[in-house]
Computed example of a mutant assay.
Amino acid sequence: MRVVGFIGPSGSGKSHRATWVARERDIDFIIDDGLLIKGNSIVAGTSAKKEKTKIGSIRRALFTEESHAEDVKRALKLYKPEAILILGTSDGMVESIAKKLELPNVTEKIYINEVASELEIRQAMYTRKEQGKHVIPVPTFEIKKDFSGYFLDPLQIFKRKGKGSYQLVGEKSVVRPTFSYMGSYTISDYTIYQIIEYVVSNIEGVARISRFRAENHPDGIYIDMDLVLIYGYVIRPLLAEIRKKVTEEIEKLTALNIKTMNITVKSLIVEKKEPAN
């Protein structure tokens, strides 16, 4: 197995350029911040960006927890990659990760200043310092379930094909970890209820919510609600519309991932018709 290190200071743009660097060198696997990534998919590991403290994030990235390291080692044995790119802030970090995961010695090292200009590195570090943004080199849909409650932004990468013409070559995700903020934030279950009540009350065919329950878990929120509908509307399409609109608004306004949403129609009411003049 060929092991290549990609090295640069924290926030200098390594994760942003990792996919391109790997593709240029025919490398299919990347190790970045505790994750083993193959192409656009996370195949093993836990992201260091989920840690609540910076120290915890560093420990996660270095695979100091045995169960975390074992998870990635099992995946490496299963996939048997021909080459792998390890991201790190120093030569020592890259070599330490390779040793921890029982990989061969790092035979090639690429430094961020070899693939990015000084201006690009400064801009990346400014964004990290001032806005707390971190890049994960996989599409947003791939990490959404694992980063419920975090602020996620898709970052699409284009390549110029000609004058005024661009081709989408990949997507990465921008995440703002807890340790990038001063303090923490919480969103109460009642806030979730108020958003859903507003959405549902504006859907034609729904009378009201008769029961509501929300549970916030690390992988997302679990919602149970009973509805009273208006007689005369086709129920299945109506419930599909409710599910779609509720999911869109909750994810847009709170960044929370809805893991499950159970909707029960408890009763129907008949609207009184206004007498004809």
Rank of each mutant, 00 (worst) to 15 (best):
K38C: 11
T107G: 14
A276L: 12
E51F: 07
K172F: 01
E108M: 10
M225T: 11
K52L: 11
K38Y: 15
I209E: 10
A61W: 00
Y181G: 02
K172Y: 06
T191E: 13
Y181A: 05
A22S: 07
M93H: 11
T46C: 05
P237R: 09
Q123Y: 11
V265M: 06
E241M: 05
A240S: 13
R243T: 06
T186C: 05
I30F: 02
Q194V: 07
R23Y: 02
R213L: 10
I58P: 00
L268Q: 11
R122T: 08
M261G: 10
V175H: 01
F179C: 00
L87D: 00
I157C: 08
N262T: 15
K145A: 14
E171Q: 15
H68W: 04
R176E: 05
E51D: 12
P9I: 03
S117F: 13
A61D: 04
K133R: 12
A75D: 14
L268P: 01
I192G: 01
Q156S: 14
G162E: 09
E204N: 11
S90T: 14
I187Q: 11
S47W: 05
A69Q: 07
T254D: 09
A22C: 08
M125S: 12
L62P: 01
T64Q: 09
E142W: 04
E204G: 04
E197F: 08
I258Q: 10
E118C: 02
S184D: 11
D146T: 05
G8T: 04
A207G: 13
A255T: 15
F29T: 00
G149N: 09
F179P: 00
F179W: 09
V94F: 03
W20D: 06
A207C: 12
D224T: 07
M93P: 01
I269V: 15
S188T: 15
L62Y: 09
K159F: 01
D33T: 03
A255L: 12
I30R: 05
G34I: 03
L253G: 02
A75F: 13
A18T: 02
V106S: 02
S267L: 06
I31M: 02
P237S: 06
I269E: 09
P177V: 04
H217A: 09
S173H: 03
A83W: 08
F141Y: 15
E65P: 00
A207V: 11
E142D: 11
I86C: 02
F212W: 08
Y185H: 13
Y185Q: 14
G92E: 14
E70V: 10
I192S: 03
Y231G: 01
S148K: 08
L101V: 05
A98Y: 10
P139E: 04
S210F: 12
S201F: 08
K245A: 03
F212V: 08
K144Y: 13
I84Y: 00
A214E: 02
V115G: 01
I136Y: 03
G88R: 01
F147H: 03
K99T: 05
E197G: 02
G164M: 12
G92R: 14
I37W: 00
R213N: 14
H134N: 04
A61P: 02
